[in-house]
């Protein structure tokens, strides 16, 4: 379907990736396929979701798309160019936010330097670095006094905002969010998702998650990945019309919170 879009931004074609399987004595016995012939494409400016359970290969897929790992066969093309070439040609136009915010930042760096690293990757033109960092921190709603703090002095939500600011800093056209909100408290997840929506602009997002509610909230369209295979591509606006049995299964096993509460909650200064 979307493979035949007129001007796809990202095209993934017949991607295969195997990992060696080892037996108890550590010998390689077989190659286990992690990604099996994965093909899809993303339009420019789209929020594409990637939904799957742990072990479904979604993190491997994200690493292949980012060029951190080479697939065994198949292509990842950005604007028609291979990912490594495209990344080299357009420095800083590719960015990523990981789930584990603790290992995402160098524990010895000040917040200012962490964000500045992303800024310099994009060439760092225009304003002075100090101004740029201050503007980025404002954009992700971080108080500017945190610029001189060290990562361990920040809460999880704040640290993930730092990672988002760093990812934005190089002015990218494509960001991968690899379970970027899954490790946060639910109340903070909502705030961060709102933030992601607000800052999106004309960027293309690949939003990886295991939670269908989050995918439905943020994405235009999402792909279901199961055991390394694409099980379905679902348009969020027409989710109920989808005939995929796996989607049905996921929907039925979703823990939905319901409440008759209708008031708008006052913005609560988060304790975290």
């Amino acid at each position: 379907m979307s493979l035949h879009d007129a001007d796809p931004f990202l095209v993934v074609r017949h991607l295969w990736k195997h990992y060696p399987e080892r037996n108890r004595s550590g010998w390689r016995t077989a190659m286990r396929p992690i990604l099996k012939d994965v093909s899809f494409s993303a339009r420019r400016g789209e929020i594409l979701g990637l939904l799957g359970e742990s072990g479904s290969g979604k993190s491997t897929l994200s690493r292949c798309i980012l060029g951190l790992e080479a697939p065994d066969s198949g292509d990842v093309l950005f604007e028609g160019q291979t990912v490594r070439y495209w990344r080299m040609r357009h420095r800083g136009s590719c960015s990523v936010v990981f789930q584990d915010y603790v290992t995402s930042v160098n524990p010895g760096f000040h917040i200012r330097d962490i964000i500045a690293e992303g800024y310099r990757a994009g060439g760092g033109e225009g304003r002075s670095e100090r101004e740029a960092v201050a503007a980025l921190m404002e954009r992700v709603q971080l108080p500017s006094r945190l610029a001189e703090s060290l990562p361990h002095q920040l809460s999880g939500g704040q640290l993930q905002r730092v990672c988002i600011a760093r990812a934005l800093a190089s002015n990218p056209s494509f960001i991968v969010f690899d379970e970027a909100v899954s490790a946060l408290d639910v109340s903070i997840q909502t705030q961060v998702l709102d933030l992601l929506r607000n800052i999106k602009g004309d960027m293309t997002y690949l939003f990886i998650t295991h939670d269908i509610q989050m995918a439905a909230l943020l994405c235009d369209r999402f792909l279901l990945l199961r055991n390394g295979e694409l099980a379905a591509a679902v348009d969020c606006a027409a989710m109920s019309a989808s005939s995929s049995p796996y989607l049905r299964e996921l929907v039925n096993s979703t823990v939905v919170f319901s409440s008759e509460f209708t008031g708008t909650p006052t913005a609560w200064e988060s304790s975290a």
């Binding site: 980012l66 060029g67 951190l68 990344r87 080299m88 420095r91 800083g92 590719c94 960015s95 990523v96 990981f98 584990d100 290992t103 995402s104 930042v105 160098n106 962490i114 690293e117 992303g118 990757a121 994009g122 990672c163 760093r166 990812a167 190089s170």
Partner: peptide, 21 residues
């Protein structure tokens, strides 16, 4: 570590990563 992965994705080369991180 994720911060080294980020530096790679952002387009930094190996010498920078070794020196800085």
């Amino acid at each position: 570590m994720n911060y080294i992965r980020f530096a790679r994705v952002a387009g930094y080369g190996t010498p920078y990563i070794i020196r800085r991180h």
